[in-house]
Design a protein around this nucleic acid. Structure first.
Lengths: 255, 255
DNA sequence: CGTGTGATTGAGATGGGTCAACCTCAGTGG
DNA sequence: CCACTGAGGTTGACCCATCTCAATCACACG
């Protein structure tokens, strides 16, 4: 048993160093003592099954979470019970910032498939920031990336053409896989069409037609959740938009 | 002169205590020494004129900013030169988180009118977190509120009815004014229709028609940028959506 | 082989985009 | 004082992209 536990911890630590979280866990020049202190604080959460929730709306904040294996979605639910997808979270990506403002979660985090998370208890966070030099800078960086993803999402939703939103979504996903060291042009979509639709502010049929059209144009190849990007340049072009004359914006001085 | 400077600092400090930033600047139980240390670090920025920019896309991160007086917008610009409004920032609200991930700004912050900002140099932030106990918790709270505003924005953009987006926007703005201690049912919109449209992913005509329709329905009264909310309950109802049967979402177990 | 869930496809309806005219108002200058 | 100008906002008419509704397909599972 004891050897088993030791083995598990070693494995977990190694996988933490591999995952993109290592930039949070292992600030430049971290020494062994600090690493141990960190290890003592980061809880390796129980494995989650598909559909299991990390937290629900209204839950009191008690931790920040990082997807370690598997993918998650965060979901807001509006008064008529309709779900809106706030974000998808790939391995190494942060979840739970939504509770920092009020101390209560404003959305739910649900595993899209079998998954593992690392959990940083909020109470311990304060201490560890002061205990581990350089950690606060790393934490801010991870927060910054999470904010950047939200802004990418905002930019998708700001586009008025469904096809552009879909192209941006696929392009962005591809880039996130690339930065994880996964193949960027061939992967399996971790979420349903329904989830994609609710992420992009579209209905499922429009997403489906968009995929089909991209396939007809030779940009991608889809079969169910299996996706291959045939023409990455073209996909990027579609994601970037019309690419017209870069107009100069003027701000008139008068009130 | 000397007395003048003293007077200014005192005034500035007082106004900082008044503004909603005081929850960042003045963590519970902060003592005078800590307050002084903080005051030494927070730069009171030069006043900004309408259209002046705090930072531009690509600028290297050097600070976080809090609107002190006046309002700001943050703007992303996509390849075809079209502006997308990422956020509006009222007094006490944070700007600049977008640079934390990469060290470079991914959007521009522009004053919507004459404005003042407080600036927390990023280099000093690290130090002050360790110097002022309780500050990191406060900082995280302010970050959390900023994230929450982004999520509200995402929820607006996820709505497919223009009228709902507009209602949510006005309702949200009203709530933000309320929390600032301003009248929540009568205020002046700090931004143009064009900005509202680019914030909501709509065209300006749709925003205009939406306002007119809300006025015809007796929910609001608009004249130019002057806004009065006649029927706050109705506005909230529209913002919350159809308010139908709260459906139960099931997540099927099968992959 | 039936059943259920997720995805695709088709046909028709409609909300919001597009284009264009017009209004409002502040500033300017005769 | 009025006319002119320009920017921001409103309104109308038209049209198309996307939503809606419905049928069908694909595939996994019992």
């Amino acid at each position: 048993m004891a050897t088993n536990v030791v083995f598990d911890l070693a494995k977990l630590r190694r996988s933490c160093a591999q995952c993109s979280l290592h930039q949070l866990c292992l600030p430049a020049g971290i020494d062994h003592d600090d690493l141990d202190r960190l290890d003592a604080i980061v809880r390796r959460h129980r494995p989650l099954a598909r559909c299991e929730r990390l937290y629900r709306i209204g839950d009191t904040m008690d931790a920040l979470y990082v997807a370690r294996e598997g993918n998650f979605k965060t979901v807001a639910i509006n008064s008529d019970g309709e779900e809106q997808i706030i974000g998808f979270h790939l391995p190494g990506e942060l979840m739970g910032l939504d509770s920092l403002g009020t101390g209560q979660h404003r959305c739910e985090a649900e595993a899209l498939g079998p998954a593992l998370v690392c959990e940083i208890p909020i109470t311990a966070l304060e201490d560890v920031i002061h205990a581990v030099p350089g950690l606060s800078a790393q934490l801010l960086r991870v927060i910054g990336r999470s904010v950047a993803r939200d802004q990418d999402h905002l930019e998708m939703l700001g586009r008025r053409q469904a096809q552009e939103r879909i192209a941006m979504f696929l392009h962005g996903l591809s880039e996130r896989y690339r930065s994880l060291g996964h193949p960027a042009t061939e992967f399996s979509l971790p979420m349903s069409r329904e989830d994609i639709a609710r992420y992009l502010g579209l209905v499922i049929e429009t997403v489906s037609r968009g995929f089909t059209r991209l396939q007809d144009e030779g940009v991608i190849k889809v079969r169910g959740r299996q996706l291959r990007i045939i023409d990455p340049a073209q996909l990027e072009a579609l994601a970037l938009g019309p690419q017209d004359a870069p107009r100069e914006q003027s701000c008139s001085r008068s009130a």
